[in-house]
Design a protein around this nucleic acid. Structure first.
Lengths: 240, 240
DNA sequence: ACAAAAGTGTTAGTGCTACACCCATGT
DNA sequence: ACATGGGTGTAGCACTAACACTTTTGT
């Protein structure tokens, strides 16, 4: 029947010649929130085939670095972003997904405060990354639309179990801002119910009431909150 | 500052020479259930370094096949298993995880009826796969313990949202058998409450009461159930 | 008769949904 | 005074968790 040794021992070519011919890349899907829309960080593709098209922040792995480390290295080199948590989403391995040859890519995603990557940071890098509304990205290079979609799904799924706002919002924020973030990520026909949202999020015990108010707004000023790091970390641990 | 073109254009060696030197492999984590314990299908490692150690069902990708297809191909070649649903779990990419060189592996998992792979199937394959209690696997080849652990976590997480029993149990089964499966996967200090489990699982509307009873058991015989494929598929769709 | 597993209901608590009005501020 | 968004409570319903005894069969 089937010869299980086929791939390993037989054939004319060496294992090197037959199997060690592929490249691995990493693509980082970096989400940010501007108070209204969910955004993703994109760079101009350097590939000839996709010249001028936008693409995710990615690059090839060198054979001597761990894949997880490479993700941080690539993100840092292309955007200057450092010290942010990346989480693996999925590996994509269609044969023809990359014009240069066989490249399997592994997608990572992260959530950052949108002000941590801005116009000032930008100028230091050749292929400046810019923020794009996730609902309005056009056709991206490679299979990056597919990767973005998968990452968005991943983010939505995580939203229920993890208080994601800690990474996406500024230090101080109002409950309405937090809710806008949830609404932007969930992207549902109707926004969440204001009262229910507040009840639930406050009952989690990870928000700290700062006893401060907004200033200079043309309406009743809202109370400001921040995340309580300790309680937040405690919750994360207990949930897993 | 940082030269973002570093990896792509500069250097003495060609892109081929520098980056297209890696291999990609697939490892399949196949779970089965024998009515009492959760089991995983393992083969004897063919690698020199791990001679005699058990390993997951895996192999290298040839550069001309899609990764998802390769997972099915490898599973079929090594075990004869066909027509089963594989789901990607995670990619593992530590530099030194494989003795032959740089090999990034992508783990897939699946759930099968344990009788679909048995002693009879087994003899056709050189490196016969055998079932091992997941709680009693020893040290596996490569980083396969890590992969197994991650796949188990994945399975636990999926249990709540997907009625996984459909793949792991025989055609006809009792509610107690179904609960044993849940208890085996969740592996919690206390088993689930019998009454609550029955209420919940029946209320999902995916079980069909066959109006049959167990035979030849030394106690009150239990009613037999089967999954209702249609209702099950409908539930899957609506849940996602 | 005994052993072994099957089968069955109720209660209390918790969380989710839906819903409408008054409040504080700037213009 | 008006416009703007901030802030609050309750009732119905669904789901969850905890808990103990009777039934049916084989030996």
């Amino acid at each position: 029947m089937v010869d299980t040794t086929n791939n390993i021992n037989s054939g004319l070519k060496s294992i090197e010649e037959r199997f060690f011919k592929s490249a691995i890349s990493v693509d980082c899907v970096i989400f940010g929130f501007d108070g209204k829309d969910l955004k993703v960080l994109l760079i101009r593709s350097y590939s000839d085939e996709f010249k001028g098209q936008w693409s995710l922040v990615g690059d090839l792995l060198t054979p001597d670095e761990d894949m997880d480390s490479a993700a941080y290295r690539i993100l840092r080199q292309r955007t200057g972003l450092d010290d942010i948590y990346l989480e693996q989403v999925h590996a994509f391995g269609r044969v023809e997904r990359h014009p240069l040859g066989r490249v399997v890519t592994v997608a990572y995603y992260s959530l950052i405060n949108i002000n941590d990557y801005n116009a000032e940071t930008e100028v230091a890098y050749e292929n400046s990354a810019t923020w794009h509304n996730v609902k309005k990205v056009g056709k991206l290079a490679f299979d990056h639309n597919e990767i973005l979609t998968a990452s968005l799904e991943h983010l939505k799924a995580n939203l229920a179990s993890r208080p994601v706002g800690i990474n996406l919002l500024p230090e101080k924020f109002t409950l309405t801002e937090l809710q806008s973030l949830y609404d932007a990520i969930l992207d549902r026909p109707k926004p969440l119910d204001k009262r229910n949202f507040r009840k639930k999020i406050l009952s989690m015990g990870i928000l700290k009431d700062l006893n401060e108010l907004q200033k200079d707004v043309a309406h009743r000023p809202a109370k400001l909150y921040s995340f309580d790091r300790e309680d937040y970390d405690a919750l994360l641990k207990s949930a897993f």
